[in-house]
Design a protein around this nucleic acid. Structure first.
Lengths: 151, 151
DNA sequence: CGTGAAAGCGAAGCGCT
DNA sequence: AGCGCTTCGCTTTCACG
């Protein structure tokens, strides 16, 4: 992982549809050398795969919500039931075990308030041993970067 | 945007590197028909672009942190200064204006605690009019889905 | 909107430096 | 590791139902 590799990763993270020959030219490399590096990065697991970035707007998912959940019990069975329910819910994009007051922090999307209410009822409120649930709505995105800084 | 389009979006979101002919076969379509649909989805903006998904682990970004920030003032100049600083910081992946106690919710990554401390000093603590800053560390990912549910 | 075929381009593999 | 060449597959475009 030298400087050239990080530049390749940055470039592919931003736009993976460019021809390898173009990248190679940007970095002063031949197409085949660049191609070989990319394949090595894929095999190493640094590149996990390739995806189309979709527009949340166009998909009609106007709500983005952060939900902090506190459970009464930390028992294995309770946690397992919770995590299974989370995994089964497609509208819960992320779930992290977190430090602080709450136990879990969730990232949830919904089409609108009715939709969020449905998710709330079916996926969240139905869970046992929930002591507290703190909801934060994202009102306006200031910055939204899919991907990571590569240094 | 019919059922076939949503299936195409789902597939491309999961893996954009598969040949169009394969997708077409999955959906009972010819390659060119499928290709034409994809191009239309790109032009419509439903597909914003194509990216390599990188491994946070392999990049050495072991810390994921949610930071809630409350500002004393809601003045334009204060908010603008804050937002500019946020945009300039590559380690702040996301920033949302949010409901509730805090004003902003940030999503931050760091290599380790030293790195986070640096970010904290240089990007966060340096901001004026910050009344409160509440930090939550993601300890363990339960679910982590890049992308959105397509229905 | 669907199919099928034809052409052009980029990715992938190879021998060599 | 890097380079240039060749091969092969896929994307892209066409004419047509």
């Amino acid at each position: 992982m030298d400087e050239t590799d990080t530049r390749i990763l940055r470039s592919l993270q931003r736009d993976s549809s460019r021809p390898v020959a173009e990248l190679a030219a940007d970095f002063g490399l031949s197409a085949s050398a660049c191609h070989r590096r990319i394949k090595a990065l894929e095999r190493s697991g640094a590149i996990k795969g390739y995806s189309a970035r979709l527009s949340r707007r166009k998909l009609g998912l106007s709500l983005l919500v952060f939900v902090e959940i506190t459970l009464r019990s930390q028992e294995r069975s309770v946690l397992d039931a919770f995590e299974a329910a989370v995994r089964a819910a497609p509208d819960i994009l992320e779930c992290h075990l977190t430090s602080g007051q709450a136990d879990y922090t969730l990232r949830v999307v919904a089409r609108d308030m009715d939709d969020y209410d449905r998710i709330h009822r079916d996926c969240l409120a139905a869970l046992p041993n929930v002591t507290a649930m703190h909801t934060t709505f994202a009102l306006r995105p200031i910055k939204f970067w899919q991907g990571y800084p590569v240094r």
